[in-house]
């Protein structure tokens, strides 16, 4: 309750809430493709390697979030290109990019003069530090994501569903694969402010994975995952506020708990259904 009254008073809390909602759009829409296409590990690789770009931006005095966006797109295309050409070594190459990107970031940050309190913010996010400018940038990224997905919904669907069939129908599979990875990159950057790059992967996959258990189409999955993202971010923010614990980590714990409960419920429901089918 204290959270609600504080929300009325404090601008930073309102910004935090809006940031959570905007990040949820990204994780709902793009996260659904990540889950159905089973590229969670790849998305994790992109998210972590982004630290390289953020560190470099930090070192050269550029706005870290711009460095992150550029780095995310570069890493996404690089990982996409590697995985398309050396399919056998996909796991290894993603793991390598994951660690190398982080290592580059840490070197840059260690060489940057001054107090390095920001490091923790990149790694674990701080939703309470979201500014009006961040919100504008997040809004632009959301619009880019939504427009791209609206235009190419069916192409992304067929490439995620059955790549071979897509190729036979004359769909440029490689182009849409790389475009999807760029969308993943943008979503990762969207989420960095909220939960940080280490925890991004949870918000990108958990809401969509829960949604997949209850709906029959990818479109509805996106809508439900977005709603769940908003729910988790808001709950996490509210729960963390009074005891003053990190909001990002709390949001992830809420999402993780919801995923666990949903799995248990889903399995239970399947068993009931199976039993009903037999006794019929």
């Amino acid at each position: 309750m204290e959270f609600v009254s504080s929300l009325m008073q404090h601008k930073f809390l309102q910004y935090a809430l809006m940031g959570g909602i905007m990040a949820s759009i990204g994780c709902g829409v793009v996260g659904s493709y990540v889950v159905v296409k089973r590229i969670g590990f790849l998305a994790g690789g992109i998210a972590h390697a982004v630290l390289g770009g953020m560190g470099a931006a930090f070192f050269f005095g550029v706005e870290p979030i711009h460095g992150a966006l550029l780095a995310a797109i570069v890493v996404a295309l690089l990982i996409g290109w590697i995985t398309l050409n050396w399919r056998q070594q996909e796991e290894t190459s993603i793991g390598a990019m994951w660690a190398v990107g982080m290592a580059i970031g840490i070197l840059f940050i260690s060489q940057t003069p001054g107090y390095q309190s920001d490091l923790m913010t990149y790694l674990f996010g701080n939703i309470l530090l979201i500014t009006a400018r961040d919100l504008w940038l997040m809004a632009v990224m959301d619009v880019v994501l939504l427009v791209t997905v609206t235009l190419f919904y069916r192409q992304f669907l067929i490439v995620a569903f059955d790549e071979e069939f897509a190729r036979l129908r004359g769909i440029p599979v490689v182009f849409f694969h790389l475009l999807l990875l760029c969308l993943v990159a943008i979503s990762v950057v969207l989420l960095i402010r909220v939960v940080g790059l280490i925890l991004v992967i949870a918000l990108l996959t958990l809401p969509a994975a829960i949604a997949m258990q209850y709906v029959h189409t990818v479109g509805r999955m996106m809508a439900l995952a977005t709603a769940l993202g908003v729910l988790f971010c808001t709950t996490g923010l509210a729960v963390s506020y009074q005891p003053d614990v990190p909001a990002g980590a709390t949001i992830i714990l809420v999402a993780g708990a919801a995923y666990l409960l949903s799995m248990l419920f889903h399995n239970y429901r399947q068993r009931i259904k199976a039993r009903a089918a037999i006794s019929r």
Partner: peptide
Amino acid sequence: PFERDFPITVEQTVMLGRLGTARLLG
């Protein structure tokens, strides 16, 4: 070749076959 638990209906699966014949956007 696809995952059986992919969230997609019969009608949507069939309609995907129109891609390549159908218009590109939207």
